[in-house]
Design a protein around this nucleic acid. Structure first.
Length: 221
DNA sequence: GGCCAGGTGTAAA
DNA sequence: TTTACACATGGC
């Protein structure tokens, strides 16, 4: 598995997720921006999320206090490019409440407990929770997404049923490395980069080199 | 014009 | 406990 990381890193270089709009943002507003991006990117291309975040920023809404003061319909209007805008506007409001009350606690408590707290928020599922833990809080959790399952199931022939099984597979295979959080951060980003653009040009697995199925969905997955 | 994107919640089977 | 479906814009 480490080989895969090394190949990807050599091929694509450092990804440096998470891109943050406010370059000089303090830690807290960065945390909110990353979390907002994690919610907006649910089943949505990142380029559309960037537009939505810029709209929020331009209207000076990229802060939990301001989101809470704004109507769902006004937020929805801003984030339209990211799709599912009514649902996500509601989710941003719910998360803003959580952010103001609980987010700082996540830094102090253990990762498992922090994950449970995030999962208890409506609109935060396992992938979004893990993205926040990894990319906003620098906790060593591996983010499992559709790309990760697709690439590794084809390349290694593994096929797990649940999110947790997939995540355990990565955690167990990468438990002894140094700077785990930074590595997980880069690895996930590299998997996305590979599957998104160049998978067909330079396949990592035989199945992808045989045909153009690399971008196709896994049947029953 | 169809397919897909850095998923999640809900309700029926 | 699994499966189906709603949510929706924008790029290729």
């Amino acid at each position: 598995m480490l080989d895969v990381f090394n190949i990807l890193f050599e091929r694509y270089g450092r990804q440096g997720w998470w891109p943050v709009l406010a370059a000089n943002a303090d830690k807290k507003s960065r945390g909110f921006e990353v979390s907002t991006g994690a919610i907006l990117t649910q089943n949505t291309a990142w380029r559309n999320v960037e537009k939505a975040i810029k709209n929020l920023s331009d209207k000076n809404l990229l802060a939990p206090e301001l989101i809470l003061k704004t109507s769902v319909s006004d937020i929805a209007e801003c984030i339209k490019p990211a799709g599912y805008y009514n649902q996500k506007a509601e989710r941003l409001k719910i998360f803003s409440e959580f952010f103001l009350g609980e987010f700082d606690k996540l830094k102090e408590i253990n990762t498992g407990k922090a994950r449970q707290m995030l999962l208890s928020v409506k609109g935060i599922g396992p992938e979004t929770a893990d993205s926040i833990l990894l990319y906003a809080l620098n906790k060593p959790v591996f983010v499992i997404d559709a790309y990760t399952k697709r690439l590794f199931s084809r390349m290694l022939g593994v096929d797990f049923k649940t999110y947790t099984e997939w995540q355990d597979f990565f955690h167990k295979n990468l438990e002894d490395i140094e700077k785990q959080a930074e590595m997980f951060n880069e690895f996930h980003a590299l998997i996305v980069e590979h599957c998104k653009n160049a998978c067909k040009k330079q396949p990592l697995c035989e199945k992808c080199s045989l045909s153009s199925i690399c971008k196709a969905k896994i049947p029953n997955a």
